[in-house]
Simulated scan of single mutants.
Amino acid sequence: MAWNEPGGNSNNQDPWGGRRGGGDQKGPPDLDEAFRKLQDSLNGLFGGKKRGGGDSSSGGKGGGYGLFAIILGLLFAVWLYNAVYIVDAQEQAVILRFGEYHSTVGDGLNLYFPPIDRKYQENVTAERTYSTTSQMLTEDENIVEVPLTVQYKISNLKDYVLNVDQPEVSLKHATDSALRHVAGSTTMDQVITQGREQMSEEVRERLQSFLDTYGTGISVTQVNIQRATAPAEVKDAFDDVIRAREDEQREKNQAETYANGVVPEARGQAQRLLEDANGYREEVISRARGEADRFSKLVAEYRRAPEVTRERLYLETMQEVLSSTSKVLVTGKDGQSNLLYLPLDKMIENRSGSSSNSSGITAPAASDSASRSNSGADIRDPRTRETR
């Protein structure tokens, strides 16, 4: 029942122990009094005596012991909370006792003793990443900007904690050193194009060698070199060089394509000329052999019938000679009288057709001059005949 309800508080007291209306205490009690009451209660719990009219000295001594015990209990609880720790399956912990290595703790619930002991707990299975971008000078004295990413993990937590003060800083310096060494022995074309994979492997091996020498306890799993570019200050000139090299390569490809088309064609023409020459040679040899064989047979026939053979050879020769000329020679039966027949109509046609001759002498005129110089032959009108 509330103290101020009607009829509920017959003593007419307030909640602080005073009487309403005319008591000695007109407000809340003193804080010292409240603290003394709390102390008396705690002393009763821990076996002390209450403060009062008895032996005040023994009661104060018991209250001091109780408070000290409470403080010790609280400190022990805080220490126990900090001393007990859990190590996950992916982690390890290194314990230092008085600043000296004591043990490496695996997964599970463990206990150490601070401040005597110090604990360093790290994840030793997860891969960590370090990225950087640096300007490098290549072997052919070109400046390139190389972005690089290093993936690593802790292989030995004891070395990671004790041997190096700041392992990540050591990793950064070792990465820069390894990258500069590899890039300084590589040309710009290899850094930019197909040589990046080989560079990544060389940087990883050299970086791991540096870290093992330092004893950092870090294992490098992979090094990735992204696309290298020229610095912004020389990017325009760098792009011009790249375009010039691409144009050079394109011209070479076009020249090779043209050579691949022309060379086989020239070889085909050369082979055709060789075949034509071989055919002509065979033709000439065969014709010469035929002529020789014909002449041999003709000699045999001449020996058998000289007169007939001589007459036949004469007629064949005259037919061959006069078949290409416009003059016709008619001989008599006795072989002594002859007549030269000149077809004037054909000669006039030939003369009109050959008026553009550069020598200025037409073919009929030349034939006419040749006929005049013929000894033993008189030129007559075609309609007249003369017999010697």
Rank of each mutant, 00 (worst) to 15 (best):
A237I: 10
A237N: 10
A237P: 02
A237R: 14
A237S: 10
A237F: 11
F238E: 01
D239F: 03
D239K: 11
D239C: 01
D239Q: 12
D240I: 06
D240N: 13
V241Y: 06
V241W: 06
V241G: 03
V241I: 07
V241A: 08
I242D: 00
I242Q: 07
I242G: 00
I242E: 03
R243C: 00
R243W: 03
R243Y: 04
A244L: 07
A244R: 08
A244F: 03
R245C: 00
R245L: 08
E246W: 07
E246M: 05
E246K: 11
E246P: 01
D247A: 09
D247F: 02
D247E: 14
D247N: 09
E248F: 05
E248P: 00
Q249W: 06
R250K: 14
R250T: 09
R250C: 01
E251I: 09
E251S: 09
E251N: 10
K252L: 12
K252P: 00
K252W: 06
N253F: 11
N253D: 14
N253Q: 15
N253H: 12
Q254S: 10
Q254T: 09
A255F: 10
E256D: 10
E256L: 14
E256H: 05
T257S: 12
T257D: 09
T257R: 15
Y258K: 12
Y258L: 14
Y258D: 11
Y258F: 08
Y258I: 10
A259C: 01
G261M: 05
G261S: 04
G261R: 07
G261Y: 04
G261A: 05
V263E: 04
P264K: 04
P264S: 04
P264A: 04
E265D: 02
E265T: 02
E265P: 00
E265I: 01
E265N: 01
A266R: 12
A266V: 07
A266Y: 09
A266G: 02
A266F: 08
A266I: 08
R267K: 12
R267S: 03
R267I: 05
R267D: 08
R267W: 03
R267P: 01
G268L: 11
G268P: 02
G268H: 12
G268D: 15
G268E: 15
Q269E: 11
Q269I: 08
Q269S: 04
Q269G: 00
A270I: 07
A270R: 11
A270L: 13
A270N: 05
A270H: 06
Q271H: 05
Q271M: 07
Q271P: 00
R272L: 11
L273E: 08
L273H: 02
L273V: 07
L273G: 02
E275P: 01
E275L: 08
E275F: 03
E275S: 10
E275V: 06
D276E: 15
D276A: 13
A277Y: 13
A277F: 10
A277I: 13
N278Q: 15
G279F: 13
G279N: 15
G279T: 15
G279W: 12
G279L: 14
Y280I: 09
Y280S: 08
Y280T: 09
